[in-house]
Simulated assay, not measured.
Amino acid sequence: MSNQQPIDDEDFGPSVSNGYKPGQKKTMDEYQTLDADDEALRRWKESLGVSSAAASGDDPHNVVVLQLILEVAGRPDVVLDLTQTAEELKKHSFTIKEGVEYRLKVLFKVQHSLVSGLKYRQVVKRMGVRVDKSEEMIGSYAAKPDIIEKKFAVEEAPSGMVARGHYEARSMFVDDDGTVHKEWNWSFDIKKDW
């Protein structure tokens, strides 16, 4: 069961994909029988994995977010284990060197049904003031047993004396239906060196 919550609170505000209206939600069985005589649609559904049996697991959630990884060239990856509880994740903090180029990567599984328009949203605050808000589209996926890896665009950490310090972040994975699949708070420090 997914945690159904509104996401347009004061931190996140409305989605940057304003104007987009998701279609009516369907079950995996409905997708499998939809337009069975349409060859092009059949191939498209196969490319999504809709034609195969839906992956199932012990976890009742449709999307199981496993890891968020910070990749920096020439350094070991910083791995945030998202299977931990919200309290454990809140205690997690790490350091980012100012001005360094980095990329976020997420590992997750989709099970039980199709997920449409999965997004990663993040708000970063410093001393209680929002300094960054971002949204990254991850995509739509059918249930399957494979772990899915999604790499985000390369970014550059802020630099300079003003940018150095402690930051609090709030992140979530949410889909077009407004279902919040994972939400947590965490922190990081931007320093002159590692």
Rank of each mutant, 00 (worst) to 15 (best):
G178I: 04
N185V: 08
N18Y: 15
G139S: 02
K133P: 00
V110C: 09
N3C: 07
S56Y: 03
A55C: 03
D177A: 14
H166E: 12
K21P: 00
K151V: 02
I138T: 04
L70H: 12
L89V: 06
A157Y: 04
G139E: 03
S47N: 11
Q5I: 08
Q32D: 05
K144H: 12
M28H: 11
K45G: 07
V106G: 02
M1H: 09
V129T: 10
G139C: 02
N18F: 15
I190A: 04
K119M: 13
G49H: 05
S93E: 15
T27F: 06
E183Q: 15
L48V: 01
N185S: 12
R170T: 07
F94G: 04
F173P: 11
R164K: 14
K105S: 12
V65K: 06
K45V: 04
I190V: 15
K109C: 01
H61T: 08
K45E: 04
T33A: 14
S17V: 08
E30H: 10
V124Q: 11
P22G: 12
G117F: 09
G13Q: 07
D175K: 05
R42P: 00
G99N: 06
K109V: 02
P14W: 01
Q4M: 12
Q122M: 12
A143L: 06
F188V: 05
L118K: 03
G178Q: 04
D58R: 02
S17D: 09
R75Y: 12
G117R: 04
S159L: 12
P76T: 02
R42L: 08
K150A: 11
Q67W: 09
G49L: 09
F152Y: 11
I96Q: 11
A157E: 06
V64I: 10
L104F: 14
L66Q: 04
F12R: 04
P14I: 02
A153M: 07
V16C: 11
K105H: 03
S93P: 00
A40P: 00
T27V: 01
E135V: 07
P60S: 03
E88P: 00
D8W: 15
A142S: 15
L41C: 00
V124S: 14
